[in-house]
Design a binder for these strands. Sequence first.
DNA 1: GCCGTTTTCGGCCCGACTGTTTTCAGTCG
Length: 576
Amino acid sequence: MPSNTEIAETLLRIRKLMELAGETFYKFTAYERAAATLENAPPVTDLLAAGELTTLPGVGKSLAATIEEIVRTGTCAQLETLQQRYPPTIFEVLGVSGIGIKTAAMLFETYGIGSLADLEKAIDSGVLAEAPRMGPKTIENIRRGILAYRGRMRRTALPRALVIAHEAVTYLESGPAVHRIGFAGSLRRAEVTVGDIDIVCTSDSAAAVIDHFVRWDRARAVLSEGPTKGSIWLEDGLQVDLRVLPDNVYGNLLQHFTGSREHNIQVREHAARKNLRVSENGILNLENGDVFTSRDEQGVYAALGMQYVPPELRSGIGEVELALKNELPELLEATDVRGDFHMHTTWSDGRQTLEEMIAAVAARGYEYHAITDHSPSRGVIGCSADELRTQRESIRDLGDKYGVRTLWGSEVDILPDGSLGFPDDVLQGMDIVIASVHSSFRQTREEMTKRLIRVCENPYVTIIGHPTGRKVDGFAGYEYDYDAVFAAAARTGTALEIDGQPKRFDLPANLARRAKSLGVTLTVDSDAHDAGQLGNIDLAIVQARRAGLTRDDVLNARPLKGVLEFVRAKRERLKR
DNA sequence: GCCGTTTTCGGCCCGACTGTTTTCAGTCG
């Protein structure tokens, strides 16, 4: 079954070829918008099965049929027809920064340039210089674009992007004239990976700020440098964009550059119906010419008659409609979280001792937490049942010593048939049990679905850990029927985890959103393997916010009593 | 191709920067 990302990529291929072929502007942008929507939407395969595909904004009858065809066959007739007109390598040419559709179409129709190799040949032979609007600077930019394409980094992981963004801000603040400064773009929306780093700031002297910016010694190339805007490339090809405006429009500026593009389009479409034109410079009233500006974003949304939309929700999948009806969820806050259920010590594959971890947890001010070392089926790094019982004896005392309630538990392997790495009588004694898949990732969809439903039906399993197994920069996760497993989790009172390890972010936000809609309780956990990683829980929290989760949806936002009641209720209900 | 608190037809977000132009097209976000 293709993932949403794969389907979106196919739609974007269609979109590009449609434009090359001279299709109507609004027709091919419809494909582009649908592709953007899918990136953050619940799994298409589930929506399709439930007949809910056209509930997505921008997906009507025609696109729903195309998407269904892609899911069923991996391609669609429309794409096949278009692909006969252009070589597959045309997408390389379109991938070069500075070459858009118009240029690519001209190069292909007039000069037969349909690949990167053709393009380089045309540059070297001087043919390209004969083309219209191809001066020396443009050709030099294309040459640089080709280099960037070849050495292109994938999108940058959020934690790393945050580090670089902080460095950029520190540098800018060391220079002249910066008043207020902040992150925008996908970084501020806390997407798991970001394509570039967007920074906005206010100043009375934008030119001085931009000048300082492009002189940063980390900048390897300056892509553009105007009176209010600059763009640079860093050593590894990561792009940083800076926009500078006067302080009275800081709210407008931040709102504009936080996006997402799709969110902004929907906000502006709504505004346009009220004869308002929204941009980073303010909200223009087309009837009387007045311009409304705001120093904060709250003012911008209020002026449009909308509820304030937190950045994590701005993905264009229905939040604008909810904000207009004043029905946005009150998102989970970091201060709501009372504990962390998932962490390891030197008893298994953690790097710090039980006491060090408990001391570090207490320092974070939690009410409770669980120590969850691995079960033995994972090999040398696991703990035997006897070892864990020994661990249990010291846990309560250490918790008392540091003033935190330490729960005894384990992260138990889910075996290929859905049974667990410890027998029931061992699990029964534990306060909390996390069950996770660490082997046999490549089972069939049917086997994996059965396997996980069986785990939900085990009365002693409190939480399923990192429920898809996906890695942000690689493995897409094991395949199973999400809706069927989520329904089983809801029915049995099994919580699903949002694991905050930067490599995991698992559940992904779109699936956590789906799980919530089916009545599942979730947890946010660090999965820390040393004390420094306890902070990973903050990353899980922002992903929970992207999923639209509230305090009520999250188990570790409940007081200890509520947590223990959740565990007890499931054991009671499924007693065997 | 999508969509509706003016609409089932006729609209469809908004602006900055570059390079090549003699007033703007193309690209990007």
